[in-house]
């Protein structure tokens, strides 16, 4: 979002004559490129990450953990009365998940497998390939993030577009935005020029919270990095804790992506998509019947 630039064009949109629209330049080219590169990176990171998870589908807390050590999450398969079934065990609660988690079909055959083929990369079991792809895209993801971070700081993008203003954080305003959001009433007119405060806080939470946590817990899984920065083990309480936090944080990122895509669709998918591709975002004036 770039408030300083002038509207590109200020003519009425032909196809919807009832509403007047002006176009603003919403996303800078760096934002757009890094956004789509992130889509590619996160897709491969999540799918290859689940491939890696499948090699040992249990999560522990602490410095060590394997097999019989206490696990707080296990995805597995077991057999009762000659019929195999898949389950997810969280603490002492076991949920049947046959067909999806623990046991699913691989080329028509029921196979014990934590995450099914359509959620892993490669689709078939191949830990070595999963790791190769995971680490390649981890590098691209980090470099992309650093470029965006540098851009955001230097250009003023973070200060201007993402930092909530004092009045936005006032309880009354904050509450109204939550209510509007819940009723799926999205800002129009002048207000649509800026991110609303919930967007700002979410984006800041993802960029300053989830993503650094993702990277740091990932690094803690590396025995080399643990030797270089032993403090990582103290911060996260051990390599197995870090592995669990890596998985939980990734799950939260998936939740973010689902909500993000849902919001894009609900608040005008074409306008949003165009603005993230070409940068141009249409703002419709409020007066007719909006």
């Amino acid at each position: 979002m770039n408030q300083e630039t002038q509207p590109l064009r200020s003519t009425p949109l032909q196809s919807t004559p009832r509403r007047r629209a002006i176009f603003i330049r919403r996303h800078a080219v760096v934002t757009r490129l890094s956004h789509w590169l992130n889509v590619v990176c996160l897709s491969f990171l999540i799918l290859s990450g689940l491939q890696i998870f499948n090699a040992y589908p249990q999560l522990h807390w602490g410095q060590y953990g394997m097999d019989s050590d206490p696990a707080f999450l296990t995805i597995g398969a077991s057999e009762s009365h000659g019929t195999p079934h898949g389950f997810v065990e969280i603490g002492s609660v076991s949920v049947p998940t046959t067909g999806f988690l623990g046991l699913s079909k691989v080329e028509g055959e029921w196979t014990p497998r934590a995450f099914p083929t359509w959620l892993t990369f490669p689709s078939y079991q191949d830990l070595a390939a999963g790791r190769n792809w995971h680490f390649f895209f981890a590098w691209v993801f980090v470099i992309n993030g650093l470029v965006y971070l540098g851009y955001g700081l230097v250009s003023g993008h973070f200060r201007r577009d993402l930092t909530p203003k004092a009045q936005e954080l006032a309880p009354r305003h904050f509450w109204r935005e939550i209510v509007d959001h819940a009723r799926l009433r999205f800002p129009a007119g002048e207000a649509a020029r800026h991110y609303n405060v919930l967007q700002k806080l979410t984006y800041i939470g993802v960029m300053a919270g989830l993503l650094p946590l993702m990277i740091l817990t990932g690094l803690t899984l590396s025995p080399g990095m643990d030797a270089a920065f032993p403090a990582l083990l103290d911060i996260f309480g051990g390599r197995q804790s870090a592995r669990s936090l890596h998985f939980i944080t990734a799950s939260l990122l998936v939740v973010f992506v689902i909500v993000h895509v849902a919001m894009v669709i609900l608040s005008g998918p074409w306008n949003n998509l165009r603005s993230m591709v070409t940068g141009r975002y249409a703002i419709r004036s409020k007066e007719p019947d909006a």
């Binding site: 410095q63 060590y64 097999d67």
Partner: peptide, 12 residues
């Protein structure tokens, strides 16, 4: 020391 398997588990 901690032994880290490529699969993901650790033992000390």
């Amino acid at each position: 020391t901690r032994h880290d398997c490529v699969e993901g588990w650790s033992a000390i």
